[in-house]
Structure formats: C-alpha cells, structure tokens
Computed example of a mutant assay.
Amino acid sequence: METQNHGVPWETEYGYAQAVKRGDTIYISGQLSHDGADLVAPAPVGVDGRVTDFSAMEAQMRQTYANAAELLGRFGATLANVVDEVVYVLDIPAAFAVAGKVRKEAYGRPDPQVASTLVGTTGLAFPEQLVEIKFTARV
C-alpha cells in the first residue's frame, strides 16, 4: 500500500491520507479547491454561516480536479485513469450550470469515460466550500 498527501493542516487534524494506492486501484479522498492551506475561490458566507453566493462553483470545481490530477500524477496516473467519481455540492443547479464544461476540460474529452454521481449536501468540510469530489482510479 502506498499513500500520498498534500501536506495541508487538515490532514493531520482529521487524520487521513489524501490518496491510497492498493494494487491497481487508487482511492482519492474528497478533494476541494485549495492551493496549499489556502482555499481557492472561497464562497462568501453570511453571519448565519451559510453561503450567500454560489458563483465560485466553476473556479472551485476546476481547482478540485487539478488537485486530484496532482495526486494521481504521483502514482504515474492521470484523470484518464479515473473510473468513478462522486461530486458533493451545496447547490445542484449551480453545479449543473458549470460541471459539464469543467469536467470535459478536466478529462480532456467531450465524453468523459467515468462513472459519476452528483450528490447535494447541506455542508462540507469548510463553510466557504461549494464542492468536494472523491475519485477512484485504476492503473
């Protein structure tokens, strides 16, 4: 078994590996839009702790795929090796508005060959976070 991390504080705080390779399968923990310990395109949050604007969905989704691609690259894999993804979002209409474009760009083809599930949820790891994506890849 081989593992990889991004080196961000929440890995130690929560206690997990970002990616685990066992045999020919790579399991990527839910990825989010960060560059190091800084969130990329954080959504504005009101005093009640709820997101007030979902327009950063595209930027967050794009960075999330980039972070997954980085982890996969450490195992000699790419997003082309992904066979399954689960996309968790705070707002399904906002995700649908950008997901097709972003996913096609990330996977580099007009018909990504990956099983995909979109799940609406009431919250993610950080209040400013709009999307989290979990991946399974085969090499």
Score class of each variant (00 low, 15 high):
residue 40 V to G: 15
residue 40 V to M: 15
residue 41 A to G: 09
residue 41 A to L: 10
residue 43 A to Q: 02
residue 43 A to D: 04
residue 44 P to G: 08
residue 44 P to D: 04
residue 46 G to E: 02
residue 46 G to F: 05
residue 49 G to L: 01
residue 50 R to A: 15
residue 51 V to E: 01
residue 51 V to L: 03
residue 52 T to I: 04
residue 52 T to K: 01
residue 52 T to N: 02
residue 54 F to R: 12
residue 55 S to A: 05
residue 55 S to I: 03
residue 55 S to W: 02
residue 55 S to T: 04
residue 55 S to V: 02
residue 56 A to Y: 03
residue 56 A to K: 08
residue 57 M to C: 07
residue 57 M to R: 06
residue 57 M to Q: 07
residue 58 E to A: 14
residue 59 A to Y: 07
residue 59 A to Q: 11
residue 60 Q to L: 08
residue 61 M to T: 07
residue 63 Q to L: 11
residue 64 T to I: 03
residue 66 A to V: 07
residue 68 A to V: 10
residue 69 A to F: 01
residue 70 E to V: 12
residue 70 E to G: 12
residue 71 L to C: 10
residue 71 L to H: 10
residue 71 L to P: 09
residue 72 L to H: 04
residue 72 L to N: 06
residue 75 F to T: 04
residue 75 F to I: 07
residue 77 A to Q: 07
residue 78 T to L: 10
residue 79 L to K: 05
residue 79 L to N: 05
residue 79 L to A: 06
residue 79 L to S: 04
residue 80 A to M: 13
residue 81 N to P: 13
residue 81 N to E: 12
residue 82 V to C: 06
residue 82 V to M: 04
residue 82 V to F: 00
residue 82 V to I: 07
residue 83 V to W: 09
residue 84 D to Q: 12
residue 84 D to N: 10
residue 84 D to Y: 07
residue 85 E to T: 14
residue 86 V to D: 02
residue 86 V to Y: 00
residue 88 Y to T: 08
residue 89 V to T: 09
residue 91 D to F: 00
residue 91 D to V: 01
residue 92 I to N: 08
residue 93 P to Q: 01
residue 94 A to P: 10
residue 96 F to P: 08
residue 97 A to D: 15
residue 97 A to R: 13
residue 98 V to I: 07
residue 99 A to L: 14
residue 100 G to T: 14
residue 100 G to M: 14
residue 102 V to D: 01
residue 104 K to F: 15
residue 104 K to P: 15
residue 105 E to A: 15
residue 105 E to I: 11
residue 105 E to H: 14
residue 107 Y to V: 02
residue 107 Y to G: 02
residue 108 G to T: 08
residue 109 R to D: 14
residue 110 P to N: 09
residue 110 P to V: 09
residue 112 P to M: 13
residue 112 P to W: 11
residue 113 Q to P: 08
residue 113 Q to H: 13
residue 114 V to G: 07
residue 115 A to G: 15
residue 115 A to V: 14
residue 117 T to E: 11
residue 117 T to P: 06
residue 118 L to W: 11
residue 119 V to N: 00
residue 119 V to D: 01
residue 120 G to S: 00
residue 121 T to W: 02
residue 122 T to E: 09
residue 125 A to P: 03
residue 125 A to Y: 13
residue 125 A to Q: 14
residue 126 F to L: 15
residue 126 F to P: 12
residue 127 P to N: 08
residue 128 E to C: 06
residue 130 L to A: 08
residue 130 L to T: 03
residue 130 L to D: 03
residue 131 V to S: 07
residue 131 V to M: 06
residue 132 E to Q: 15
residue 133 I to K: 01
residue 133 I to R: 01
